[in-house]
Amino acid sequence: MTETTFLSFLAPPFPYFIEGNLTTYKKGQRHPNRYNLGFFDVIIMKEGSLYLGEENKQWKLLPHDVLILEPNKHHFPVEPCTEDTVFYWFHFQTKDKWCVQKEQKPLEPDQPVPTLHYYSDNNTVHLPKHQKLGNPNELFNRLDLLLKSTVKIRSLAFWETQQIFMQVLQCLENDQHNQSSNVKLAEQIEIYIKQNYKEPITNKSLAAQFHVHENYLARCMKVAFNCTPLEYLSNYRIEQARLHLLKTDLPLHLISEEIGFTRLSYFSQCFKNKYGVSPANYRKQYRRDRSGVGSGTGGQVP
């Protein structure tokens, strides 16, 4: 990774999310020419190329590039897009100290906070001004969740949006340190499996999703979790099934379908291999209908 400057933020308080979206520019379109936007503008490239400038600096942004444009500076297009271009963007701001620096030095608060037994000292969040993502899929997944949260009822979505935004900032800060880490890729696979376990997942589809060879995926998962991706998937599905057995009255065939198994017999065998009993007997061990009548076929049990 080429040398870059860092935007360093004193936290807490943490930067907060304002707005964002996924945008497509057609060939020939340009980024807006703007002065003094008033908040940070983050560009995360997904496809194509974008030509941007800020004051006396210029960048050609390609897939998986991230650029943070600063408040109160001139942002301008250098030239039009030469192809259809897709990128995420979001705006954020902070109420506390921040600065641009070449080294990741901690910032000191202007007014020290008295030390209490429950108080955590200030930290400094360092976000690269410009970086190439080593593992973009985790960030893309987080950004998709972030954007989905913004179209929910505001009173319900406020906490969810800001929490996911913190995860986005963490991805941007951590990616620079973990681009070659096998464990980091394994964690990406773990997140993908947890988000998509209900869908058909194979070694081939995972290799396509993460753009690496199937054998490399298996090695990374073995290092981090001592199992292959498909073993992790099966274990996670079985854990979800266990929760359904304890918390719902769904019949076994619906639970099997809900967690991604295509055959009830295979689901039952996998469950028994892990817990030593069949799904039906597991439910009987931990669930008792107080009325003395057998379980129903639907409804959520608190």
Rank of each mutant, 00 (worst) to 15 (best):
L10T: 04
A11G: 01
P12R: 04
P13E: 08
I18F: 03
E19L: 08
G20M: 02
G20Y: 06
N21W: 15
T23V: 13
K27P: 00
R30P: 03
H31G: 00
N33S: 15
R34W: 15
L37W: 03
F39Q: 05
V42Y: 04
I43C: 11
I44Y: 15
K46A: 02
E47S: 05
L50Q: 02
L50M: 07
Y51I: 04
Y51T: 02
L52Q: 03
L52P: 03
E54W: 01
E54I: 15
K57G: 08
K57C: 05
K57F: 09
Q58N: 11
L61D: 10
L62D: 11
H64A: 11
D65M: 02
V66P: 04
I68G: 05
L69S: 10
E70P: 01
N72M: 11
K73R: 15
K73D: 04
H74G: 08
F76A: 08
P77S: 06
V78P: 10
E79S: 14
C81H: 00
T82D: 14
D84A: 12
T85Q: 01
F87L: 02
W89Y: 12
F92W: 07
V100N: 00
K102H: 10
K102W: 04
E103I: 05
Q104C: 07
P109R: 01
D110Q: 12
V113I: 13
T115V: 14
H117V: 09
Y118F: 13
D121I: 13
N123Y: 06
T124F: 01
V125F: 08
L127G: 12
P128G: 03
Q131P: 02
L133Y: 05
N135Y: 14
N137T: 14
F140R: 06
F140E: 14
N141D: 15
L143P: 06
L146T: 09
L147A: 12
S149K: 11
T150K: 09
V151R: 15
K152S: 13
R154Y: 06
L156I: 01
W159G: 10
E160H: 00
Q162S: 09
I164N: 08
F165M: 11
Q167S: 07
Q170S: 14
C171P: 10
C171F: 05
Q176A: 13
H177L: 12
H177E: 12
N178T: 14
N178M: 06
S180W: 06
L185T: 04
A186H: 01
Y192A: 10
N196G: 13
N196L: 13
Y197R: 06
N203L: 15
Q209C: 12
V212G: 02
H213I: 10
E214R: 15
E214Q: 15
C220W: 00
A224C: 00
N226K: 09
C227M: 15
T228A: 10
T228M: 04
P229Q: 07
L230Y: 02
L230S: 03
Y232S: 03
L243Y: 13
L245P: 00
L245F: 00
K247D: 13
T248E: 02
T248P: 04
L250Y: 11
P251E: 01
H253C: 06
L254E: 13
I255P: 04
E258T: 11
I259C: 02
G260R: 01
F261V: 05
R263T: 03
R263Q: 14
F267A: 00
S268H: 03
K274H: 02
P279G: 04
N281S: 04
N281A: 05
R283Y: 01
K284N: 07
Q285F: 00
R288W: 11
S295I: 07
G298M: 10
Q300V: 13
